[in-house]
Nucleic acid binder design. Structure first.
Length: 566
DNA sequence: CCAACAGTAAACAGCC
DNA sequence: CGGCTGTTTACTGTTG
């Protein structure tokens, strides 16, 4: 599109001049031109928007220019200057780095345009060119590192989201040499110089499309198998219909929860008014939305890493005592135990369960649960599991995400019996189940509940009777169990996530006592045991630590193993 | 230290 | 009589 016509063609043409069209005859060059042009266009816009000059000028402007959202949205893997402005802290760092980047570009330009055109000098030029690129690469890596330290950009190629990364990848020495060969083989040196802007970023289009195809399916949202959305509240019965109309995911505690907004709204009506006026579909809102996507993406990447690590740990722990098995064997002890016919209705004995790892390429997201307490590795003894309600993501999304894992791995789900029973009942078409159907749901959904049946079935019955939230209803077919959601919510304790006490303890445990005292940070804890600290007024984390429940020690205190995240 | 909550075990009754 | 369902009590551990 850029080659023929389009909104950005004029700007590019102005910059690169008429020779462009004449030099793109060879299919190889044409392809590389297209790739280069796209990236150069992004680079150009980026420089414009961050207040930097084009390489042809020596000045560095300071006033930022708004980047068109259409351009920003054009490449999902690209982090826009607007996002950078919002994300980076302190902003001076970003400005400095980007100025350095621009300066490097200018230096490269300078090197190329002021070197002679004789063949003898080509080698020197190439060397200088590559040296400049190496320097740029180092700067880019530094910049990426800074972003990673803020937990906003991932390390993996193809999963990052910045053009810088594309640029970095575009600077693969092999590609550069090939490109240099291609270009110098066809064009005169002067013409090469005129195209330096393109040459710098060759191959970026490949990189971008690779990134997009690899990552984008995960990014925007996670449609769950049962159609539920992890962001939304769980199903409620009709008695709480009023809550539906009076609640909004972006509204809570009288505040607008739009990132960085926190506008006070007295009631829902005022909030809706505010939402429509302040957060309408415009460039700013779209950019903010994209930033939020980046935050979510980063969290998901981290979650995938942790899940993968957990899976490896569990595989290791479960496999060691027994004979060596292929790595991808399901962690299912039930399959080796004698189970009654009834207990194995869901998964007939001897029938292989779906593999959980290695052999079958399952995404890391599904290789392990978001959170499993260390105690659940063994599932024996008297262990408290109340943290299910307090510490984890809502059971619906957690189960949906790790459904396959729990079905196959002999791991105790980190939920209370009550929450599991409730989920089973609410999942039923008519929101009612017989006791036996509840049993079946447990054995169907969790490998763990295919053994020790007497214990957990007794616990299920005990919970049904004990908790007022479970209501027994006489039916034509017999008795069924339903959920009194009001009672359940009444019973449900406040979530541990974001607990001020916990946050305070962790911060002081990290040795950040002074920070906590002198610097009012906001913090939140994710379901995968990551604590994010943000500066006042910012929703973007400036520090991230992860912690793991290591082991129980004297006085029944848990040791929290804490480490700083990249 | 305490209250609330959660898990486990077990006794018991009613029904099929 | 045995199994299932449902209720209740006792006890222990965990957490705020």
């Amino acid at each position: 599109a850029l080659y023929r016509s389009g909104p950005h063609t004029l700007r590019l043409a102005n910059r690169w001049g008429p020779p462009c069209s004449a030099k793109c005859i060879s299919p190889v060059i044409l392809r590389k031109f297209k790739q280069s042009a796209l990236q150069a266009a992004r680079q150009f816009i980026l420089q414009q928007a961050t207040g930097l000059n084009s390489p042809s000028s020596n000045e560095v402007k300071q006033s930022p220019v708004q980047v068109p959202v259409s351009m920003a949205m054009m490449t999902p893997q690209m982090i826009t200057p607007q996002q950078m402005q919002q994300i980076l802290s302190p902003p001076q760092l970003q400005a400095l780095l980007q100025q350095q980047q621009a300066l490097m570009l200018q230096q490269v330009t300078h090197t190329l345009t002021h070197t002679g055109s004789s063949q003898q000098q080509l080698g020197n030029k190439q060397l200088a060119f590559q040296q400049q690129l190496i320097q740029m690469q180092q700067l880019q890596q530094q910049h990426i590192l800074n972003l990673q330290r803020q937990g906003l950009v991932s390390l993996q190629p193809g999963q990052g989201a910045v053009p810088i990364q594309s640029l970095q990848q575009a600077m693969c020495p092999t590609d550069l040499q090939q490109l240099w060969k291609d270009v110098t083989g066809v064009q005169s040196t002067e013409e090469v110089m005129k195209h330096e802007g393109l040459d710098l970023t060759t191959n970026s289009s490949n990189t971008t499309s690779y990134s997009a195809s690899k990552v984008s399916p995960q990014i925007p949202h996670h449609p769950l198998p049962n159609g539920q959305n992890s962001v939304h509240t769980p199903k409620r019965d009709s008695s709480t219909h009023e809550e539906h109309t009076a609640s909004h995911p972006l509204y809570g505690h009288g505040e607008c929860k739009w990132p960085g907004c926190e506008a006070l709204c007295e009631d829902m009506g005022q909030f809706i008014k505010h939402l429509n006026s302040e957060h309408a579909l415009d460039d700013r809102s779209t950019a903010q939305c994209r930033v939020q996507m980046q935050v979510v993406q980063q969290l998901e990447i981290q979650l995938a890493k942790e899940s993968e690590r957990l899976q490896a740990m569990m595989t290791h722990l479960h496999m060691r005592p027994s004979e060596p098995k292929p790595f991808n064997q399901p962690l299912n002890l039930a399959s080796t135990m004698s189970l009654s016919k009834r207990e194995t209705e869901g998964f007939p004995e001897g029938l292989p369960h779906p593999p959980t790892s290695a052999a079958t390429p399952i995404t890391p997201m599904r290789q392990g649960p978001s959170v499993i307490s260390s105690s659940s590795l063994h599932g024996v003894g008297h262990i408290r599991r109340r943290n299910s309600d307090k510490f984890c993501t809502p059971i619906a999304s957690e189960l949906a995400q790790n459904c396959e894992f729990y079905k196959n791995a002999d791991v105790r789900p980190p939920f209370t019996y009550a929450s599991l029973i409730r989920h089973a009942i609410l999942e039923a078409p008519d929101r009612q189940l017989t006791l036996n159907e509840i049993y079946n749901w447990f054995t169907r959904m969790f490998a763990y509940f295919r053994r020790n049946t007497a214990t957990w079935k007794n616990a299920v019955r005990h919970n049904l009777s004990l908790h007022k939230c479970f209501v027994r209803v006489e039916n034509v077919k017999g008795a069924v169990w339903t959920v009194d959601e009001v009672e359940y919510q009444k019973r449900r304790p406040p979530k541990m996530t974001g607990s001020p006490t916990l946050v305070k303890n962790i911060i002081s445990g990290l040795g950040f006592g002074s920070l906590n005292a002198s610097y009012q940070v906001s913090a939140f804890i994710t379901s995968n045991r990551h604590l994010y600290l943000s500066e006042p007024g910012s929703v973007f984390p400036c520090l991230c630590v992860c912690f793991s429940q290591e082991r129980c020690v004297t006085r029944q205190r848990w040791i929290w193993e804490v480490s700083l995240c990249a």
